[in-house]
Computed example of a mutant assay.
Amino acid sequence: MRAAVWHGAGDVRIEEVGVPEPGPDEVLLKVAYCGICGSDLHEYADGPHAIPVTEPHPASGTMAPLVLGHEFCGTVLSLGSAVTGVAAGDQVAIESNYRCGTCPRCRDGEYNICRHFGFAGLMGDGGMAEYAAVPSYMVHRLPAGVSMEQAALFEPASVALHALRRAGTAPRAVAVVGLGPVGLLTVLLAAERGVPRIIAADLSPDRLDIAARLGATDLIDAGVDAPGERMRELADGEGVDVAFEVVGSETALHTCLDATRRGGRVVLVGLAQEVRLDAFALVNKEQSIVASVGYRDTYPELIRLVGERGLDLTPVVTSTVALEDVITDGFEALLNDAGKQIKILVEPAPQCRNATFAD
């Protein structure tokens, strides 16, 4: 089969590799779509960051070179001997995070912070290929009303949904700083939850326009002077109840803190390195900062929202490319045209997007 294989920074190759053989607890699927995540882009541009290069990841037993892609869906082709609850021909979305099931966090149901946490497609072979084999616990069957295009977006939408859950309140006003795919999906899901005021901030006019279509009530150019103060003014001069930092920068974090009311909360979703804080102001305002990583128990809710309520995740998709073109029209397009491109889907075998076992 053809696959996008990461060998190093700037070195992703479309190669012929063997079709994976599913183990006893695994499912083999024909991939319909695989999204390019910001994490994939960072690994391509200047990795490794998460990809194991010196020893195999404990959950996957895999190290580089490996097949990229953790935002994927497809059609079940075959099952390992111990797999139940899914059948050949089922269309499925893949919840791609590994979990051991035995560490204290897993035993408490917090498998997104498993001791051996990782993702298929970053810490093990993923879905940027014609076929993929994954542990059966990653597989979610799709009802008839959920398309493959929607299912390919469940992974980034799960990050947004988990962040909203981490907000821990029923907010009247929120700010979303950073309108990449996760930021835009945070806007969409906040609107679906009925948040009355949603302030969206970004440098890109195109992304601000999409945020407005997804439910943002107010738009802020993040490049203006004191954007946090402007957000606070929009929220009755008090500030928002919750601000979501979806950039991964110290500047964006400060903007979120400035925008947030006394007693409010900032949810860190973006991946920053070290940041400096005014701890005196943080304490005096009794603000909280919480982190949000990955997701857990989100796919059933997203399947319900899309299948039963008609929620449409696809406005964040800006293009769909063939596997053979993923370097030039995928990674390079995202690096060189970041303002225009948001979510790019890779279609490994277009004629097989709705394949069944008989195919």
Rank of each mutant, 00 (worst) to 15 (best):
V5N: 07
V12K: 04
E16K: 07
P24E: 11
I36R: 00
C37L: 05
C37N: 05
G38F: 00
L41E: 03
D46H: 09
H49I: 15
A50Y: 12
T54Y: 01
E55K: 11
S60G: 02
S60Q: 01
G61I: 05
L66T: 04
V67A: 10
H70V: 11
T75E: 06
L77A: 09
G80A: 13
S81H: 05
A82H: 14
V83H: 00
T84I: 04
A87N: 15
A87C: 10
E95T: 03
N97Q: 11
C100L: 08
T102C: 00
P104G: 09
Y111T: 14
F117M: 15
G121R: 02
L122T: 00
G126E: 01
A129D: 07
A132Y: 05
V134P: 09
V139L: 11
H140V: 13
A144W: 01
S147G: 15
Q150S: 09
E155S: 03
P156F: 04
P156D: 08
V159C: 15
H162S: 09
A163W: 13
A163L: 03
R165G: 12
R166G: 06
R166S: 03
A167M: 09
A167I: 02
A170E: 10
P171G: 15
R172G: 15
R172C: 10
A173G: 03
V177M: 07
G178V: 11
G180L: 05
G183A: 03
L184D: 00
L184R: 04
T186M: 14
L189I: 12
A190L: 15
E192I: 02
E192S: 11
E192T: 10
A211M: 08
R213M: 09
G215P: 13
A222W: 07
V224G: 09
D225W: 05
L234V: 06
A235D: 10
G237Y: 10
V246M: 12
S249L: 14
S249G: 09
T251G: 06
A252I: 12
T255S: 09
L257K: 07
L257I: 11
D258P: 02
A259E: 06
R262P: 02
V266M: 14
F280N: 06
E286A: 07
A291H: 06
S292G: 12
Y295N: 04
I303T: 14
R309H: 10
G310I: 08
L313A: 06
L313R: 05
V317F: 07
L323T: 04
L323K: 02
I327F: 01
D329I: 00
L335E: 15
N336Q: 08
L345K: 10
E347G: 01
C352W: 04
N354E: 14
T356L: 12
F357D: 00
F357A: 14
A358C: 00
